[in-house]
């Protein structure tokens, strides 16, 4: 008895310690970033840093607006492109396809999810960039192809396996009775999907999207390779952009050689953290609201 009690308290302590440790990491990172950004905040105001479009590190001129816009736009394009396709694929696999086909596609999707970012980037340079160049010329806006659109497409392709597979899992956890009860009313499969399956799984779908993009924000490499990396606010889909992760990854090597540059990059990291955090928080708030309505 004593031994079992001891083991129990040991386990409890260990679990608590792990929890504290994990949370402490996030906390330490945030604090460190904040401390490191203090030099630049002492020299310029926060609102200037966030709203200025002029980026001249050598002159000590740091305007982050183009990078913030670039980040948001690349993400928005990726979401617009990926979410409908992923959800429809997951719906097809879950509600229309044969079980064996579903199993096969699951395997393929898992393999896709495991491909390293660099490889996606290379494929993007080889295939997507030229495609965007041709598209741009056809639409009358000449472009190198290294652009906002190319970045968005690559990001969309990269988040698709995760969103599809999580959404599929979510759909498959809906009990059979949901389908039987609704189909028995004489409604079509699509009506069932629209009114019952999607509504029942709203929670999980949002989680799938958050998971996909939480991963995507970290996968800088591929986007960086196709997005052009010009620190200007992009005025069209075919203009180059410069998202925050790319800024950090491209420049951390020389950040010590220019005064305040290191602090500026830390500031970029902090903004990125806030953006990602805001994204997750927003999703959580939506979930809370849905939960309170109690329909899921």
């Amino acid at each position: 008895m004593k031994v079992r009690r001891f083991k129990d308290s040991l386990a409890t302590t260990f679990i608590r310690a792990s929890l504290v440790f994990v949370n402490a990491i996030a906390f330490v990172i945030a604090i460190t970033l904040f401390m490191k950004t203090r030099p630049i905040l002492a020299k310029t105001t926060l609102s200037h840093l966030l709203s200025s479009t002029s980026w001249h590190p050598l002159r000590g001129d740091f305007g982050f607006f183009p990078f913030i816009i670039g980040t948001l736009e690349v993400t928005a394009i990726a979401m617009i492109l990926s979410i409908p396709v992923c959800l429809l694929s997951a719906i097809y696999l879950s509600e229309y396809a044969h079980g064996r086909f579903r199993g096969f596609v699951r395997l393929v999707v898992d393999i896709l999810a495991g491909i390293p970012s660099v490889i996606y980037g290379l494929c993007g340079v080889i295939a997507i960039v030229p495609l965007v160049r041709i598209l741009g010329q056809a639409l009358g806006s000449p472009t190198t192809g290294y652009s906002l659109l190319a970045g968005g497409i690559i990001l969309a392709i990269m988040v698709s396996p995760v969103i599809t597979s999580v959404a599929l899992e979510v759909f498959r956890t809906i009990p059979r009775a949901a389908r039987e009860n609704s189909l028995a009313l004489g409604i079509t499969t699509w009506e069932m999907v629209k009114h019952v399956i999607l509504r029942s799984s709203l929670h999980g779908i949002i989680a799938a999207i958050v998971l996909g993009f939480a991963r995507a924000f970290g996968e800088t490499m591929a986007v960086l390779m196709v997005v052009g990396n010009v620190p200007k606010v992009p005025l069209s889909l075919f203009d180059p952009a410069y998202p925050l992760p790319a800024l950090i990854a491209n420049n951390y090597g020389e950040m010590m050689s220019i005064p305040l540059y290191d602090s500026a990059l830390m500031f970029a990291a902090l903004i990125l953290m806030v953006v990602v955090g805001g994204f997750s928080l927003g999703a959580h708030l939506i979930l809370l609201k849905i939960e309170r309505r109690g329909y899921v």
């Binding site: 009990p175 059979r176 009775a177 949901a178 039987e180 009860n181 609704s182 028995a184 009114h195 019952v196 509504r199 029942s200 329909y295 899921v296």
Partner: peptide, 11 residues
């Protein structure tokens, strides 16, 4: 049709 376990539609 009534199933073994009822499923209230999400509404």
């Amino acid at each position: 049709f009534l199933s073994q376990r009822p499923y209230p539609l999400p509404m």
